[in-house]
Design a protein around this nucleic acid. Sequence first.
DNA 1: CAGATGCGCAACCAAATAGTTGCACATAAT
DNA 2: ATTATGTGCAACTATTTGGTTGCGCATCTG
Lengths: 109, 109
Amino acid sequence: MSNTPERELAGVFAALGDTTRLALVTRLLAAGALTATALSEGQAITRQAIVKHLQVLVTARLVVHERHGKEVLYAVDPRRLEEARAFLEAIAEGWDKALGRLKSLVEAP
Amino acid sequence: MSNTPERELAGVFAALGDTTRLALVTRLLAAGALTATALSEGQAITRQAIVKHLQVLVTARLVVHERHGKEVLYAVDPRRLEEARAFLEAIAEGWDKALGRLKSLVEAP
DNA sequence: CAGATGCGCAACCAAATAGTTGCACATAAT
DNA sequence: ATTATGTGCAACTATTTGGTTGCGCATCTG
């Protein structure tokens, strides 16, 4: 229950489980490396809030940050995303059975 | 930013973003429909805690519950899982580009 | 050098989460 | 009818989370 892979995986999902963070990840994937200030530009929330979200993503190792002169650039590390995808892929084999059970919930064991 | 699909997707990820809930989902996928009492048996936390987690999963529509006599059975609805998988699959096309940018973060724009 | 720009830290706040305990109610089983 | 089992509801607590504001420090740019 304290198995590290499970815990880490849950961490990745938790990091993705917020609309702001999900948007940040997709934006960073599309546009490449950006600074927190650039990411907060034209956004409803503060730069500080964005920074906090980015820190959450960094802690989950979904995002990498690197200082470059005056600025700090954030970029997505796709390997964690791949892990999440692989997990869903792995448990996908039980899905058809689960779908069958959905309808036959009526016939109790 | 209030786009419902994004919000719903984040809800699915958030529901998976907890070790207890992730374990519940995998257990339910493997074993089929189970009651909250059965799920809490031999577990460290209370049945009530399990019920709360199941309610979170139900709210995210990852799990379906149906009363059957005295018991209430919970089962995974794999369609939400499939949506999450499809999302990761969809943004996966940007991953190789992102991987390239990881190393070349040194050369700032 | 002086000013503008970007970042980091800290205090603070409201709301949500994860968990507990206690008890009442409904449905089976004897 | 009585007991046992499974569920539901409520109150309460501690921690986390998402967000704010304010300010100081570092780093470019004119």
